[in-house]
Design a protein around this nucleic acid. Sequence first.
DNA 1: TGTTGATAGTTAGATATCAAACTATATAGC
DNA 2: GCTATATAGTTTGATATCTAACTATCAACA
Lengths: 153, 153
Amino acid sequence: MTQDPLAFQVFNEIGIIEHLSRTMFTGVLPSGMTVAQFTVLNHFIRLGHHERSPADLARAFQITRPTMTSTLTRMARAGLVDIRTDPADGRAKLVSVTPKGEAMRARCIAAIGPLVPLIDTAVSGAELAALLPALQKMRAALDALRDPPIRDA
Amino acid sequence: MTQDPLAFQVFNEIGIIEHLSRTMFTGVLPSGMTVAQFTVLNHFIRLGHHERSPADLARAFQITRPTMTSTLTRMARAGLVDIRTDPADGRAKLVSVTPKGEAMRARCIAAIGPLVPLIDTAVSGAELAALLPALQKMRAALDALRDPPIRDA
DNA sequence: TGTTGATAGTTAGATATCAAACTATATAGC
DNA sequence: GCTATATAGTTTGATATCTAACTATCAACA
């Protein structure tokens, strides 16, 4: 039962929590919305970005470019983002959030809000506060483990 | 930047760590193997189970039955598991790991082994030890948040 | 015994994700 | 200027995952 290295036990718990929280979030998001798409919308608005290239976004989220192409294509089809070719670089494109995308992000935030008190009943603020710095440190350490250190976007 | 509720920041870090660790694991697994399939093999062998129904497995991993059907179908096709109809229940099936499946599990364990010292350079054992109980508690609390409390298989 | 509701498994269709391979454009070096 | 390498984006084909809907079987109960 506990024959696993400590690290694997930790990763296992993290995997389960990730799965539970993702399911919880997805369940309350507006129909058709996904965590991945919300994350893109949220990234722009939280950081005040206007335009970003798909490659920038892929790096920021640590996903591959093909994955980003896929998600952005769907988001553009749904009218949540605009994509134009970068006038300064023929290879690149520039993505921006449409008003519809901003409205969708607001709807998602509103939908997620009620989860906070629910989570508070399950996990105390003190526990979360204690966990956060340890997780941040671990994330940074694992991040640095990968071959080419990548800077955030 | 830090306008998110504490819980969301924690979930965000957990999501990133999950992604990094999954990528790391998948990268060293034998070609064609996935974390999901390894998890099934490991579940049987670690717990000493002989036969389990797909529904049992789905419950144990907190995934839906269709997902389990999909993964088991591929595993059976690859010769890693055997699936037979349950003689005692016409609806159910019984899954067992084949010798080939056991060998594959051993190969995966061997492949994952070298990751341990690598991870140790990034995260100290003390940090992991401190994290584990907090994560276990959080996982249990989130688990209990879901509607019908489900007991482990 | 026969109907009703619960459970098991599957199929269909969707999204996110990856690796591999490909095209197009930029940049560096000679 | 030209070639070689690097970077951006896409396409293809695979897996895992979900929800919705469907079939089959079991179990409970009137």
